[in-house]
Design a protein around this nucleic acid. Structure first.
Length: 978
RNA sequence: GCGGGGGUGCCCGAGCUGGUCAAAGGGGACAGGCUUAGGACCUGUUGGCACAGGCCUACCAGGGUUCGAAUCCCUGCUCCCGCACCA
């Protein structure tokens, strides 16, 4: 298969407009995949994502369905803004990424300084590669999310949600770079990728009308404070907030000033002057001394720490250090104060003492506050106290409550009484922006939120989920979890490409929010291209989607009605395909918004979730350069090989692994398909003509077997594809069917080779056995169609070269081929031989006999002049039936019944055989009595050929010199080798 | 931490509504065939022991249910993934 041939068919399909779908009388199938965000070149991971729906679309078309498979470009969002500016700034890492990995040539590279150009460039690239892959997309409906009419659609949607009360205003903390003056995502970071933002409570400890405001994860430990820590080597400042004076570290101001408005620096503070003084506990009013500590990080929180030595290992060990540090004690004159410190208990914990911090310190053998194991100790105690701790009984109001509950109650109480405030900080430092400056946590105010926390909305969304097919079913519980967990979603952004919030133009609509119900947009996108944007208004969408009339409608009536018709034909969406990692956001949002906006009858019907891609066992990643571009793969192997590999190596929801070696193997397998045609033509002695296969009545069991296998494979493949199991489908229709064909040709080889076959039939046409030609041609005709969704170009080429009618793309999906049996003896017997079970069992018996004989031959190394085969006598069948009815290998019960029914005279023989059958029955499937004599006679030529010895099949034991006949079991005749 | 999903033969990976499972398919390895001995292709072998079509040991570990478990239940160990303002 050359690329030229693939291109030839792509051109023909396009010219014939095969994939342009409009509403008609047929049943429809509408499926969409998440549209790509084109900020880089398409790699093989994307290839899998988009090939799955294409295969399914092609499969459904062949089943006679009207299939809509559209594509668009999600160009809204912030990443390209950063990329563009990095290219403009000649950032070497970015330049290399785009030049080497995304293979943008030098000339184009400089143009990528413009974010709009980036998405334009790569959406063109995507379009081209998708065409090269042969995707059956209706390109008339292609759009970008920045198209004016799409923006109208988004504005309408947001206004509608706002009217429904699903939008609110609020504040939100984000990772932020003060230098770039922008929020930053993980991909914008030089350092600190994946670092969490934590919420801390800052407690106000009063001292001389000013406040030290140590921040903590554990506000409930305020009851166990013994002292405060300041680091004498850190620089502190005084700041004013709402008339209050706070003392914080200079470094923490950088972060805090982004969270708390009107934070003004008053001046520097010398921490040494505070050491030894006393502060007032905001909740207990106790006085606590301030001590020096080196472990206090000026960059974290507000640069001071309150000490709870009973429950914080760091505090405990710092206190010990201080006690032993004569220099410090005398420098600040603290000896007496320190000696008077009494460690307090706050939380009761089973298996721990009154002072859990001490237990942990001793367990881990921590020596001083510089010990790196201190972090481990802190984490361990933090976890245990949070999950298992109970507030000790002496704590007022909260004693006996679980720590996890009391913590929030205490925090809220203090905040409500202005004794504390919330701040955010990174879990780890530093977090560095790509520009080189440190990031902070900034509180974005006047943000807009979608109220996913709304219980009524959640409930409706669950209802929407429950009426859907989810593939694979296991991820359904994931959806349930996420729907429950989702909080309000900040849906507005400062930067990026996108649509502005219609009622607050300073904000852009966030890209996950503008892609929730766009599937509906596809159904009408082709019409909107011919409508004046000014005429597209809310009234228009309300009319199209809900048939609500309005005076504001500006579009002509008949145009409206044809658009309406198109929408109501295609909607609801039958399948939504997307990646696994989007379950928690995009796919859930998709459910939320459909549930809110559309009536039940237009709720989506199904979702398929994709796994990830690996490259030779490693995670694929463009930014790390570990990818193969799809265009390169097509160039090297051809689109069909790439498609076939991607579909065969894993089910869509599993991770697939692109292994060069196996890709090459796939290519070879495809080549063999072409060779198969030559083989048939060779046997036939003339070119294959699929439109004109000569029907032949079959009389050999093996011919029936082959057709029967074909039917099984067709059914299994069809069932697998209905459930998007592309891998299983290919196992059945490519690998296993190939094996069947190999088996068949092997099985009939004596009919093709031997001289006693008449090379010409009575009409003088055809070279060999007509039945074989019929069987192989029939198999091939189905085979090529069933493979067409996977390897459309090759299938088309073979189809046309073998006389197939029209395009194979449009051919009918193969279905069951009825079996007819041409029995020479008795036409009434027909039915008896045509069940799948009997056909399969017949072949099993023949193969079993050959196998057993060969095995025996191997064991006893001597010449045989004849092999005798004895069949199980009637009473054995009766006994087998009895055993089967009983259903388990209960020898006593089997014998009892057998003797009761008097099936055989010799009771000892019954006993022996009952033992045998009870073992055998667990290994063999019972399908009723069959005519073994006929079956073996039919396969006699083959058996003799295989074992290279004459055989005799006996109906009775009149000739049985070594008394072997008694070994015969139903489905397993006895063998005597003479 | 919360939530989800796994652990199968040299490797990947099916099976997992209990018996037809020494376990599909692919890759690798080994042997043989073919051969312009280079690739490709074809056949066979790839847990152990037997040597009249058989037996034993096996599907993370341990326990249980059952006539019977890779498959069902419990316990332990262990691995992977998602946890947001980002597509």
């Amino acid at each position: 298969m050359s690329r030229e041939i693939e291109k030839k068919w792509q051109k023909k399909w396009e010219e014939a407009k095969l994939f342009q779908s409009d509403c008609d009388e047929r049943e429809k199938v509408f499926l969409t995949v998440a549209y790509p965000y084109p900020s880089g070149a398409m790699h093989i991971g994307h290839g899998r994502t988009y090939t799955v729906p294409d295969v399914y679309a092609r499969f459904k078309r062949m089943q006679g369905k009207n299939v809509l498979f559209p594509m668009g470009w999600h160009v809204t969002g912030a990443p390209v803004i950063g990329i563009a500016s990095r290219i403009k700034n000649k950032d070497p890492w970015t330049l290399e990424l785009y030049e080497k990995v995304h293979q943008v040539n030098k000339e184009e590279l400089s143009k990528l300084e413009d974010p709009e150009y980036i998405v334009k460039y790569f959406s063109n690239e995507y379009h081209q590669v998708m065409s090269d892959m042969g995707y059956s997309i209706d390109w008339r409906r292609e759009f970008k999310t920045t198209d004016p009419s799409y923006q109208k659609f988004i504005e309408w949607q947001l206004r509608k949600l706002k009217e429904m009360g699903m939008v609110r205003k609020g504040n939100h903390p984000v990772k932020y770079c003060p230098n770039c003056d922008n929020p930053v995502g993980d991909h914008d970071l030089l350092d600190g990728e994946g670092v969490d933002v934590n919420e801390l409570t800052m407690l106000k400890f009063e001292i001389n009308g000013k406040y030290l405001i140590p921040a903590t994860f554990r506000p409930e430990t305020v009851y166990g404070v013994t002292n405060l820590w300041l680091n004498p080597d850190v620089e502190y400042i005084e700041v004013k907030n709402n008339g209050e004076s706070w003392i914080i570290s200079e470094k923490s101001f950088y972060n805090l000033s982004n969270q708390i408005k009107d934070l003004n620096i008053i001046g520097k503070i010398d921490p040494k002057e505070f050491i030894g003084k006393f502060v007032k506990n905001p909740i207990t009013d106790k006085k606590h001394p301030i001590f020096p500590a080196s472990f206090v990080d000026g960059e974290y929180g507000s640069g001071s720490v309150f000490s709870v030595p009973g429950h914080a290992p760091a505090d405990y060990i710092a206190l010990q250090d201080l006690k032993n540090n004569e220099n410090l004690l005398s420098e600040y004159n603290l000896k007496e104060t320190v000696a008077n410190i009494k460690i307090l208990n706050v939380v009761t914990l089973k298996k721990y003492s009154e002072i859990p911090a001490k237990d942990v310190i001793e367990k881990l053998g921590i020596k001083n506050q510089e010990d790196p194991k201190l972090i481990e100790a802190t984490n361990e105690l933090y976890k245990v106290e949070h999950s298992k701790g109970i507030m000790s009984p002496h704590i007022p109001n909260y004693g006996g409550k679980k720590v996890a509950i009391a913590r929030d109650m205490i925090k809220d109480e203090m905040i409500n009484n202005s004794l504390a405030t919330i701040m955010y900080d990174f879990a780890e430092h530093p977090v560095v922006c790509r520009c080189g400056k440190r990031c902070v946590v900034k509180i974005m105010d006047n943000q807009w939120f979608l109220k996913y926390s709304d219980e009524t909305w959640k409930e409706k969304t669950r209802e929407c989920l429950n009426q859907e097919n989810i593939i694979p079913n296991e991820v359904k519980s994931n959806f349930e979890y996420y729907i429950g967990w989702l909080k309000d979603w900040a849906c507005s952004r400062r930067i990026g490409l996108g649509t502005r919030l219609p009622w607050d133009k300073q904000w852009l609509i966030e890209p996950l929010t503008d892609s929730t119900i766009y599937m509906s947009y596809y159904t009408i996108a082709n019409y909107l291209k011919n409508i004046n944007v000014q005429d597209i208004n809310d009234a228009f969408f309300e009319k199209i989607f809900f048939n609500i009339d309005s005076n504001d409608l500006k579009v002509e009536k008949d145009i409206i009605s044809s658009i309406q018709k198109e929408f109501s034909y295609w909607y609801p969406l039958d399948w939504r395909l997307s990646a696994k990692d989007l379950i928690g956001n995009h796919l859930s949002f998709h459910l939320f918004h459909h549930a809110a906006i559309f009536p039940k009858e237009n709720w989506p019907q199904g979702m398929v979730v994709f796994g990830m891609g690996l490259l030779e066992g490693n995670k694929m990643s463009s930014s790390k350069g570990n990818v193969i571009l799809l265009s390169d793969a097509i160039e090297k192997y051809g689109a069909d090989v790439v498609r076939l590999f991607l579909m065969a190596s894993a089910e869509p929801w599993q991770d697939f692994d692109w292994r060069e070696k196996e890709v090459i193997g796939t290519k070879r397998r495809l080549d063999r398909l072409f060779e198969f045609v030559n083989k048939i033509e060779d046997i036939k002695g003339s070119p294959l003509d699929l439109s004109n296969i000569k029907k032949v009545n079959l009389s050999r069991k093996i011919d029936l077997w082959m057709i029967n296998q074909l039917n099984i494979r067709i059914k299994d493949t069809t069932d697998a594809l209905e459930g998007f199991q592309t891998r299983k489908a290919l196992q059945d229709c490519l690998f296993l069917l190939k094996k069947d064909i190999d088996h068949y040709t092997y099985r009939v080889k004596h009919l093709l080779e031997s001289d006693n076959v008449d090379n010409t039939n009575k009409n003088g046409e055809g070279k060999w056995d007509e039945a074989i030609v019929y069987v192989l041609s029939t198999v091939f005709k189905s085979w090529i169609r069933i493979l067409a969704p996977f390897i459309p170009h090759s299938a088309e080429e073979l189809w046309s070269s073998c006389g197939g009618e029209g395009y194979v793309v449009e051919a009918q999906w193969p279905t069951n081929i009825p079996l007819t049996y041409n029995s020479s003896q008795d036409s009434n017997l027909e039915e008896k031989y045509l069940s799948t079970e009997i056909i399969e069992k017949s072949e099993e018996i023949v193969q079993g006999i050959v196998h057993d004989i060969l095995q025996i031959k191997k064991i006893i190394d001597k010449e045989h002049k004849k092999i005798h085969i004895y069949l199980a006598s009637g009473w054995k069948w009766d006994l087998y039936k009895i055993a089967e009815d009983i259903g388990k290998p209960d020898i006593g019960q089997i014998m009892g019944k057998a003797i009761g029914q008097n099936i055989h005279d010799d009771k000892k023989e019954i006993a022996d055989f009952a033992k045998k059958i009870s073992r055998e029955m667990t290994k063999t499937r019972y399908i009723g009595k069959i005519d073994e004599y006929e079956i073996l006679n039919d396969g006699k030529d083959f058996i003799e050929e295989e074992v290279k010895t004459e055989i005799a099949i006996h109906k009775d034991n009149s000739y049985d010199p070594e008394d072997k006949a008694k070994n015969a079991i139903p489905y397993k005749p006895a063998i005597y080798m003479e």
